[in-house]
């Protein structure tokens, strides 16, 4: 795809997010660049070697995001010494309001190990597009707005590849088991590659 067409596609996606279906050729998941809650540039690839738990939302989100982040935090706490091998990420879908400062306050409230990510509208749209996240601003009469968005949690393996999608609604215990299963799998792979050398 030429850069021009890509831009057009993005523009369309921003205007009519639902009228456009994800092109089949577009790969699911993958690396992306945003800004972390300390204002520093962030790249998914820098987390290679760790298991990444990726969630999309926004800080004004009334219910699902706090619930999911609380679950995520509970899972991170339950991992004990294994927690170093896992990174929780929260990507805002509302970069207009969610500046790095706002995000830092927000994610720290849940867990100090969580990292909040933001960027320009276009950058965020691109990540959402990669991970097939649908979202849309919903204007309220008082001039306020909310954002409807899909609520899956994405598991990204040590090589940076999307490995599983956890639908919202499953108990934290399931997420914990899944994460531990993935970590055990990663340990096996490590052991294999080290004996191979």
């Amino acid at each position: 795809m030429s850069p021009g067409r890509r831009f057009l596609g993005l523009l369309l996606a921003a205007v009519l997010p639902l009228a456009v279906s994800w092109a089949d050729s577009e790969e699911l998941g993958g690396n992306f660049r945003l800004t972390d809650h300390n204002g520093r540039p962030f790249e998914l690839d820098q987390l290679k070697g760790r298991l990444v738990l990726l969630f999309f939302g926004y800080t004004y989100c009334p219910d699902i995001c706090p619930t999911e982040l609380a679950n995520l935090s509970a899972v991170l706490n339950a991992l004990d010494d294994q927690a170093e091998r896992v990174q929780g990420l929260f990507v805002t879908l509302d970069p207009g309001r969610d500046t790095p400062e706002v995000l830092q306050d927000y994610v720290r409230h849940f867990n100090r190990r969580l990292v909040g990510l933001t960027g320009s509208e276009e950058e965020v749209a691109q990540v959402a597009r990669q991970y097939r996240v649908s979202y849309q601003r919903h204007e309220r009469e008082n001039g306020d707005y909310s954002i409807d968005h899909s609520v899956n949690l994405y598991l990204i393996d040590a090589q940076g590849a999307l490995s599983a999608v956890v639908p919202y609604g499953l108990p934290p215990q399931h997420l914990l088991e899944t994460v531990q299963g993935h970590l055990a799998g990663m340990a096996d792979t490590d052991a294999l590659s080290s004996t191979g050398r």
Partner: peptide
């Protein structure tokens, strides 16, 4: 079907790999 390709469905079922 437009968004939920077999690959997406596979990622869903992957999350029970350790269950």
């Amino acid at each position: 079907p437009e968004n939920d390709t077999p690959e997406v469905m596979r990622l869903y079922s992957n999350n029970f790999r350790y269950a």
